[in-house]
Design a protein around this nucleic acid. Sequence first.
DNA 1: GAACGATTTTGATATAGATCAAAAAATGCC
DNA 2: GGCATTTTTTGATCTATATCAAAATCGTTC
Lengths: 185, 185
Amino acid sequence: MNPLIQQLRRYGHLNEAAEKEIEQRIKYFSKRKGEHFLKEGQHVSSYFVLSKGLIRAYFFKNGRELNSWFGEENQIFGSILPVYTEKPSFENIQFLEDSEVYAIAVDDLNELYRKYPALNLIGRKIAEEVCIVLEERIISLHTESAIERYQSLIKLQPNLLNRVNLGHIASYLGITQETLSRIRR
Amino acid sequence: MNPLIQQLRRYGHLNEAAEKEIEQRIKYFSKRKGEHFLKEGQHVSSYFVLSKGLIRAYFFKNGRELNSWFGEENQIFGSILPVYTEKPSFENIQFLEDSEVYAIAVDDLNELYRKYPALNLIGRKIAEEVCIVLEERIISLHTESAIERYQSLIKLQPNLLNRVNLGHIASYLGITQETLSRIRR
DNA sequence: GAACGATTTTGATATAGATCAAAAAATGCC
DNA sequence: GGCATTTTTTGATCTATATCAAAATCGTTC
């Protein structure tokens, strides 16, 4: 069973015809560690799922890379911006391990929304769930100290620490690597 | 024309029957400055619009109030959490000026979604737009200094400064009132 | 327009986290 | 197993922002 379809089913039911056409449009990629899935200014994919691997999303600020999130297996994620506005994303998405991805292109998704309106319920649920995740991140950044943010992250994505180096984690938390090292001690 | 319907129309088309029933379920409130629209643990409203007035959303952290956002006239806002999970919000919503509100209850909205599936497209668009706004706030908190966050806020909601005292702004920015006062100098 | 409370500013000091530099430890490679 | 590279830790100092206290300003009411 296609891992992206599997994720979509968590949010709502689709009839067979819709599901079949979605499946036809889902593309599979196999990528090596270090490769990019998406670079700033492109707008290839809307939603996607890793059946294997690990990714990070990052952007540039004053010439420095800043991580905005990490994605692990069997989560659904993507960039909302291109889906909503058809504008490209300012984010870069890079594989941190050899990975396998199932993805649907922005244009395909928008056509599917037109053709199968029932899909909008699923799209709504996904976007609402993303809102809730984003709100939690805002609260974390708004109210928590570096130590607390670190603890929040371990609670949310406990495996991450074994898969990603500290520099990436520090960048996500909005602190320097040195501070993170001191926090952990 | 009902101000909430007017906002919904910005996201997509609804047939007459749907629009009529939505309009019937929209409730009007007139509230005085200082009154609450929503207190922590309730889940009255999903989406709403002010035709007049100003509100803030806030929550408690270690006994202190922290502002999470401000709402002005002719914006659509609400709490996604109750719509998505049917769980109550942890936020409080209070009027900062005498206000007039058009609102739709969570239960009504969910029934409308069932009855008029086309509404899901609008719900999806709204949630997607909220995601984009939330992402901007995350970037601001993640990467900007207090001064930059202050400037970002003025750019986004320039009238706010004339309508709200500095304590509220500082609480939104995640800094103390003293620091905000020094920044402004 | 005096008096009160609320809001904003100013001052002195404390602290979390940044920066720069270098050492130590871990990892990968031949 | 030894060398090179990357990652993590440690140290010294600096800076942005917090805290606590008090003064100044503003707004409202009688």
